[in-house]
Design a protein around this nucleic acid. Structure first.
Lengths: 254, 254
DNA sequence: ACAAAAGTGTTTCTACTACACCCATGG
DNA sequence: CCATGGGTGTAGTAGAAACACTTTTGT
């Protein structure tokens, strides 16, 4: 917190350091998740510039100092980069800070770059488009990334992605996060499939129903019903997300 | 993540920006907690330099680029600043990243400064000493801060402290964090008083005992007994922290 | 003996699991 | 009619709360 207290008297270097010399580049990276084709997927771009040319990477970019009076908010930077690199902007259901990755060697370039990583949930609707420096943007199943290309992600993005996935899995238990993966009006089955997809486990439909209905503020009845599926079955009630952000008792994974 | 992709083509400013212009200062701040005099306390320093001269603040300082080949690890910077400003170094039981605070106006000075905040647990043993630029360092009860001086903390340290306290309270439920506040060998009563102090609630001694003993890997029996207190009572068994980091089932707060 | 703190046992209640069963629709 | 998915009911079990009770010390 103290730029003016550097350099301290016990400086270890001969060089005459000024505050300017301690400045670093600050980037943001976003792990944006969605559920498509019944799979838990994350948005990746294929890098169009070195380093890590043609590697897959999380969308992101520098926090810019030429936006606003004193530079932009990191969260704004995340939204801006998402828009610039992938065309996704509307319908972003959720965004929270995940953590900051600041090891000196995480970026091989001359300049040191630290990255504030964000965890987000995107719309199932829009298709991402490769744009600007990102030669290609696409949603990719997290299982497939883990199995096939986890060693081919740029920078420390494999670590960031791992942390983001764990955050998502943990948050489903005690928060209403799962509703962000659903349509504006959704059935309890749709909500259950979110849990099943992200946790990779099957849940008892009856028990799940009772649990989410017992959690105060989780679901609001819309009074409408979904149309019955082509394969038959009783039409399900449609709900919308309630106002609560945490749920008691939590939905446990085993 | 892309210094070389700045400045982008859709730059909004007339100014000819180079990568250098987007660099900012990165600080670390540490919310270091302990339990003293049966109170939940946090380490504060009294600032000896502007801005916020004579305000209380969390210890912290700049991540330096003149340490190591490419600058230091943020976590190392946190430990170094803690040592420089307060003299505390040994016996730090725990340190984890809390989050990054990067609003453009969080620091009133010319240079923009973002701060990576850390959550730590310190020793009950050592006394902090005011040092270098910090004119005074002391542990202060969090209740007292909230009641008396929360509006007089430097920068956004009130917000950071609030988040850190909430992190501590939440982590007690599902992690073995509480043992870090205890002596190397401790009684179940001592552990219970950690929960009671941090949660500000009374727990049933008998039920607490059964819960922590049922949680696998939470406690290890040392085979020793504490000496009975002066006020009488059966001597308690002494335990040490087990190897588990999370506990099932969790210890719930109501 | 009494007070005080450690530790155990017991009863009651809540919440979860597993699974049976009924409901409403399409074919 | 049957198949399919939505939704409810129920018995058994695990964990938690409340609190009585026993154990081991100091005074």
């Amino acid at each position: 917190m103290e730029p003016s207290e550097s350099p301290p008297l016990d400086m270890q270097s001969d060089k005459n350091w000024s505050v300017e010399d301690h400045k670093v580049l600050v980037a943001v990276d976003i792990a944006l998740f969605t559920i498509r084709d019944s799979k838990f997927q994350v948005l990746l771009i294929k890098r169009g510039i070195p380093p890590f040319l043609d590697f897959w990477a999380l969308p992101g970019g520098l926090v810019r100092m030429d936006i606003g009076l004193r530079g932009e908010e990191p969260e704004e930077a995340a939204l801006r980069e998402l828009r610039e690199e992938t065309g996704l902007s509307k319908g972003l259901g959720y965004l929270e800070q995940l953590g900051t990755y600041g090891s000196p060697n995480r970026d091989p370039r001359e300049q040191r770059v630290i990255s504030i990583a964000y965890f987000g949930i995107g719309p199932t609707l829009e298709d991402p488009i490769g744009d600007s420096d990102a030669s290609h943007a696409t949603f990719m199943p997290v299982d497939q990334i883990a199995a096939e290309i986890s060693s081919q992600l740029a920078f420390d993005h494999n670590e960031i992605l791992f942390d983001a996935i764990e955050r998502a899995r943990a948050k489903l238990e005690y928060s209403t996060l799962a509703t962000k993966f659903c349509s504006p009006a959704f059935t309890i089955s749709e909500l259950r499939s979110v849990y099943e997809t992200i946790w990779g486990a099957n849940l008892d439909p009856g028990n799940f129903q009772k649990k989410v209905l017992a959690a105060d503020g989780f679901l609001e009845d819309t009074g409408q019903k979904a149309e019955a599926s082509a394969t038959g079955g009783r039409p399900a009630k449609l709900y919308r997300a309630g106002t609560a952000s945490s749920i008691t008792p939590p939905i446990r994974r085993n």
